[in-house]
Design a binder for these strands. Structure first.
Lengths: 175, 175
DNA sequence: AACCGCTATATCGACCCGATATAACGACGG
DNA sequence: CCGTCGTTATATCGGGTCGATATAGCGGTT
């Protein structure tokens, strides 16, 4: 998941580790750690998906290779893509412009299905435990349902906007 | 974090691992894994916070010890409690009834502060990157802000309800 | 009686997190 | 100019977590 995020960011242009982490925070991955980022960079370097060159000062500039781009595309569009994992879903969405337009909607729909199933089972367990559970736990469970419902609404908006203007602003392939 | 969740659940009564995991799912921890649960149980057993006895069939019944209760109380009320970690926050909330009432509001307020800071910095990075970023990334960032805002509203409700009926009854109400 | 899906415990490697170490850098006042 | 403080930047470590997988009893179905 982190590999995809890093490749997707480095794909926009060369970057160093610290900057990479900040961009991830910008995307909403608050808790990403340097203990994940730097090992990931070495991992990707070993696999020859990225290259390193010295930047200014202590910096190391990372840039994506041809194999890296290929690999990124492959894991991005992977049919068996993890739609249950919120973080993985969000990363894929962040790089939606690189995704085949016809798989975008399918991807969003699958995410919606997962959320709907969770909402249903959460509602069930809310009803089942309504009397045994204190108000804090109950509120926690209810808020979980409301959040998931809001996510579904958001997904519906994304799907709608994807269906209506699908020929408009496809991002430039090059950089 | 998982340790606290397990101790809190086992505190209600003896339980086996599989049941424990299901209860965690009920609380909204969708992605908790057996690869975390069983090692955690052995960890807690080694520390003598829980005891094991054979249940029916292949089951193992886990029950909390006196030291376990003590430890649970200690990590629950820990002043330096991790309020930035969403999962840890949610676990603590699920066991709010065991928390000292006067620290509950303080805890909720600290969580609110963290969320407010995130909202502010997310808004900043939204403005900063508004032109450079595609509509998918933009929508992702915006949705993050909206979710966090909804969380703040929810926290406000919890705080309000905590301030008004602080008369020590744990009767579940509508909410 | 063979089969299937669910319950239940367990382990493995890869990965991620939080804390910590190190050090160069710019800014600022004394 | 000189200390020192906050930020930038890379890196490592131990312990925790994840996802996959193995094993097997158990109840119901055809």
């Amino acid at each position: 998941m982190l590999d995809m995020a890093i490749l997707g960011l480095v794909r926009e242009g060369p970057m160093h580790g610290y900057e990479l982490k900040q961009r991830l925070v910008d995307l909403g991955f608050w808790r990403i750690s340097f203990g994940s980022v730097y090992p990931a960079l070495r991992r990707l370097e070993r696999a020859e998906f990225i290259e390193v060159s010295p930047g200014s000062g202590r910096r190391k500039e990372y840039r994506i290779t041809a194999e890296g781009k290929e690999h990124f595309q492959q894991i991005l569009e992977d049919e068996a893509s993890e739609v249950e994992n919120t973080s993985a879903f969000r990363v894929r969405l962040a790089f939606f412009k690189y995704m085949n337009p016809e798989t975008r909607i399918e991807f969003l729909e699958r995410r919606k299905t997962v959320l709907r199933e969770r909402i249903a089972s959460a509602r069930t367990s809310l009803r089942r435990t309504a009397d045994r559970v204190d108000r804090y736990t109950h509120s926690l469970m209810e808020h979980g349902v409301r959040s998931a419902e809001a996510d579904v609404v958001w997904l519906d908006e994304l799907i709608a906007s994807e269906r209506t203007n699908d020929e408009g602003q496809d991002a430039p392939e090059k950089f």
